[in-house]
Simulated assay, not measured.
Amino acid sequence: MSSSPSADQAVAIDGVEHRYGAVTAVGPVSLHVPAGAFLVLVGASGCGKSTLLRLIAGFERPTTGTVRTGGRIPEPGRGAGLVFQQPRLLPWKTVGGNVELALRYAGVPPKERAARVPQLLERVGLHDVAERRVWQISGGQQQRVAIARALAVPNPLLLLDEPFAALDALTRERLQEDLRQVTAETGRTCVFVTHSVDEAVFLGSRVVVLTSRPGRVALDQDIDLPRTGVEPDELRGLPQYAELRATIGHAVRSSQEVAA
C-alpha cells in the first residue's frame, strides 16, 4: 500500500495533477514506491497510466504536486531504463550492437562492454543471436533486446509502457515469465503499465487501478504471491491468484462505470 515518503522510496508521487490545456489527465494522485517493488498501473485507455509513467521518467513535469525518483526530480534519459510498446531498436545495427550502444552511452569502457553484451543477451535468452540484424529476428525477440538494452544501464528503476501489447499470446506469456524472473534476480524497482488484469497480477508485487480520466487511485492492492520458486502455471493455479484477479478486475470495471 502507499506509504509515507522516506529515504528508501524509489518513486515518490505527492499530490500530482497533470493537465493538457483545460483537460485534467491525472490526479490528484499520491503514490510511494519502495525500492525493489514491482508496481503495475492498470486501467482503461485514457485513464492516465502512460502520463504517470512519463512524469516518473521526467519527460513531462506535473502541473501541480511533485514527482521524485531516488529523492530527486527526474530528468529524461537519466535514472531509469525505459521499455516502450515498440522496441525502438536501430535496424542498421546488430542485436549486440544495440545493447552495446546503450552501454557506450552509459560510459562503460570498451573492454567491459565486450564482456557485458553477451551477459545481458544471455539474461534475456538471446545468447545465440548477437550478430543478427534486428530485422532478422522476431517481434518477441526484438522486445527482449529492448529489455536487455534497458537493463544494460545500471539504473535502479525500470519503466515499462505496455511492452508486450503488440505480441501474440504465447510470446507475451513467455516474456512475462522472463521479465518476472529477471527483475526478481536483479532487484530493480519496476513501474509497469498494462490494460491486462492477468498480466498485472502475474507481474506485480503491487497493483494500482486508476479510474477513467482524470486518473485517480481506485484500488491500491498488494500482491502477496511468491516471486521465486514457483512455476508460472502453478502460480496461476493458486486460489489467491484467482481471488486477486477477481478483486482487481472488479475494481477496473467499477472505476469505468463510475466515470460513465
Score class of each variant (00 low, 15 high):
residue 123 R to V: 04
residue 78 R to A: 12
residue 101 L to R: 01
residue 207 V to G: 01
residue 174 R to A: 15
residue 112 E to Y: 00
residue 103 L to Q: 03
residue 150 A to H: 06
residue 175 L to R: 07
residue 88 R to Q: 13
residue 54 R to M: 13
residue 3 S to G: 14
residue 145 V to N: 04
residue 117 V to H: 02
residue 255 S to E: 08
residue 244 L to D: 06
residue 260 A to K: 11
residue 34 P to T: 08
residue 229 G to T: 07
residue 174 R to L: 10
residue 74 P to M: 05
residue 216 R to H: 05
residue 125 G to M: 11
residue 31 L to Q: 10
residue 91 P to V: 08
residue 216 R to T: 14
residue 187 G to H: 10
residue 48 G to Q: 05
residue 4 S to N: 11
residue 137 I to W: 07
residue 75 E to Q: 15
residue 247 T to F: 06
residue 206 R to G: 02
residue 49 K to T: 12
residue 231 E to A: 15
residue 42 V to M: 01
residue 198 D to F: 01
residue 148 A to M: 06
residue 175 L to M: 15
residue 186 T to R: 14
residue 14 D to M: 13
residue 244 L to I: 08
residue 116 R to E: 03
residue 189 T to C: 12
residue 225 L to S: 04
residue 183 T to V: 15
residue 163 P to Y: 03
residue 7 A to V: 09
residue 251 A to G: 10
residue 198 D to T: 07
residue 221 Q to L: 06
residue 110 P to A: 05
residue 42 V to E: 02
residue 171 T to P: 08
residue 171 T to F: 04
residue 106 A to W: 01
residue 116 R to M: 02
residue 247 T to E: 14
residue 167 L to K: 03
residue 253 R to D: 11
residue 167 L to N: 02
residue 4 S to Q: 13
residue 159 L to E: 01
residue 176 Q to K: 04
residue 3 S to M: 12
residue 104 R to I: 00
residue 55 L to E: 10
residue 85 Q to V: 06
residue 85 Q to W: 05
residue 206 R to Q: 12
residue 67 V to K: 02
residue 119 Q to F: 01
residue 18 H to V: 08
residue 166 A to H: 07
residue 218 A to S: 12
residue 23 V to S: 15
residue 144 R to V: 05
residue 96 G to F: 11
residue 126 L to M: 10
residue 242 A to S: 14
residue 210 L to N: 09
residue 170 L to I: 13
residue 3 S to K: 11
residue 214 P to F: 09
residue 167 L to C: 03
residue 112 E to W: 00
residue 121 L to T: 03
residue 143 Q to M: 03
residue 56 I to H: 11
residue 185 E to G: 10
residue 183 T to D: 01
residue 50 S to Q: 08
residue 1 M to C: 09
residue 94 T to R: 12
residue 58 G to D: 10
residue 115 A to N: 00
residue 172 R to D: 05
residue 167 L to D: 01
residue 109 P to R: 00
residue 45 S to M: 09
residue 15 G to Q: 15
residue 258 V to E: 13
residue 199 E to L: 01
residue 111 K to V: 00
residue 134 V to H: 08
residue 111 K to A: 09
residue 43 G to Y: 04
residue 7 A to W: 02
residue 133 R to V: 05
residue 229 G to I: 03
residue 82 L to C: 03
residue 187 G to T: 06
residue 27 G to S: 10
residue 58 G to F: 12
residue 79 G to I: 10
residue 4 S to D: 14
residue 170 L to P: 00
residue 138 S to Y: 10
residue 178 D to W: 07
residue 57 A to H: 07
residue 157 L to W: 03
residue 103 L to R: 00
residue 2 S to F: 09
residue 135 W to A: 14
residue 182 V to A: 15
residue 9 Q to V: 10
residue 34 P to Y: 11
residue 252 V to W: 06
residue 221 Q to R: 14
residue 232 P to A: 07
residue 235 L to P: 06
residue 161 D to L: 06
residue 137 I to R: 06
residue 160 L to E: 00
residue 92 W to V: 08
residue 130 A to K: 11
residue 72 R to I: 00
residue 135 W to Y: 15
residue 239 P to K: 04
residue 173 E to P: 04
residue 127 H to L: 05
residue 52 L to T: 09
residue 64 T to H: 13
residue 145 V to I: 13
residue 133 R to I: 05
residue 244 L to R: 07
residue 240 Q to H: 11
residue 131 E to V: 05
residue 159 L to G: 02
residue 94 T to E: 08
residue 44 A to T: 12
residue 25 A to G: 15
residue 2 S to C: 13
